[in-house]
């Protein structure tokens, strides 16, 4: 099994045009085997682009194709509206990879989904997406770095370390059920805890690799969840051990102020929760080898 998406998931790509990022990655997702059933574009309803039927809006796409997931890569000024349009159309799983959405837009969209659309799960924004190995890939992950068959689940805040971690697992022959890139923005739709809870409930996932980074308190919250609620082994790596305090390292998620949110504090919290903590992505892969070997 897998979490959140599988071979039956039908994806609508929001904001599809012949030159959009959505088309480039949507076609790669389709080539991976993902059911990309529709695209939307208010100016191109009725057209077909690369064999993908285009509708003027998500509601029309859902009505015609039964799409239950969406992929958003539209520019930041339009992303929050696209997320809400998907939710209003009844989409259950929205993947938004857009980087650079204003924090207040994210906060409004998140709280609106919580209040009015509790059955819609948002992944991202500013994330690589999700890949259920061999079944469904929504987002920008290169599909060939994933290895189907489980038993590992992967959840990551950082995008490129997500790829690195998938690759490390695959290189070591450890298959994945699902890899979830939650993104590094201030208000992610899906948290570490959401993904960990789903992996805990998934019978085919036997162990989880978690990739965090400095800043915020999401890893500490995950540590609490792992300690109290998880029976499956977890390995973790936190990027930014050597980052100087008080400096913004590239995006909103990665800033430390004072002793709060440092890699050290996060690693200690995770260790105390029984997690095996690695010093780098390669070592994380090696620790997963040990964990998988000891699975009953």
């Amino acid at each position: 099994m897998s979490i959140f998406v599988d071979e039956s998931t039908k994806v609508v790509v929001q904001g599809l045009s012949p030159t959009s990022q959505g088309l480039y990655h949507g076609l790669r997702n389709r080539a991976y085997g993902t059911q990309v059933v529709a695209g939307t574009n208010p100016k191109r309803g009725g057209e077909t682009i690369e064999g993908i039927p285009v509708f003027s809006g998500v509601a029309e796409a859902v009505a015609a194709t039964g799409a239950d997931a969406s992929f958003i890569s539209v520019p930041p000024p339009f992303a929050a509206a696209a997320i809400i349009e998907a939710a209003e159309a009844g989409i259950g799983f929205v993947v938004c990879i857009t980087e650079g959405i204003p924090a207040h837009d994210e906060a409004r969209a998140y709280n609106l989904l919580r209040r009015d659309f509790p059955h819609t799960r948002l992944l991202g924004p500013n994330c690589p997406g999700i890949i259920s190995a061999g079944k469904c890939n929504i987002g920008i992950t290169s599909g060939d770095i994933a290895l189907p068959g489980g038993p590992a689940g992967l959840v990551s805040r950082s995008g490129t370390v997500f790829y690195q971690a998938l690759y490390e697992l695959t290189q070591k022959g450890i298959g994945q059920t699902t890899g979830v890139g939650i993104g590094g923005d201030p208000v992610p739709g899906t948290s570490f805890t959401d993904a960990l809870a789903a992996f805990e409930a998934d019978p085919e996932t036997k162990a989880v690799l978690m990739i965090g980074e400095i800043g915020g308190a999401a890893e500490e919250q995950a540590a609490d969840f792992i300690r109290d609620r998880m029976s499956k082994p977890v390995v973790a790596y936190i990027a930014g051990v050597t980052a100087p305090p008080g400096r913004k390292m590239g995006h909103a998620g990665a800033i430390i102020s004072g002793s709060q949110g440092t890699a050290k504090a996060k690693m200690e919290a995770l260790s105390a929760a029984g997690v095996s903590v690695a010093q780098n992505p390669t070592e994380a892969g090696e620790l997963m080898v040990d964990v998988v070997k000891n699975l009953v």
Binding site: S156, R157, S158, G159, T160, V161, F162, Q164, G184, I211, E213, I214, Y237, A239, G240, V241, T242, A243, M249, G250, H251, G253, A254, Q279, N280, P281, T282
Partner: peptide, 22 residues
């Protein structure tokens, strides 16, 4: 990516080097 850039700094430090920048 910020994560990989930080991770790269970490690894350089761990193998005995020292990053000049992120």
């Amino acid at each position: 990516g910020a994560g990989l850039a930080m991770s790269t700094c970490d690894v350089v430090e761990q193998v005995g080097g020292s990053p000049a920048n992120f």
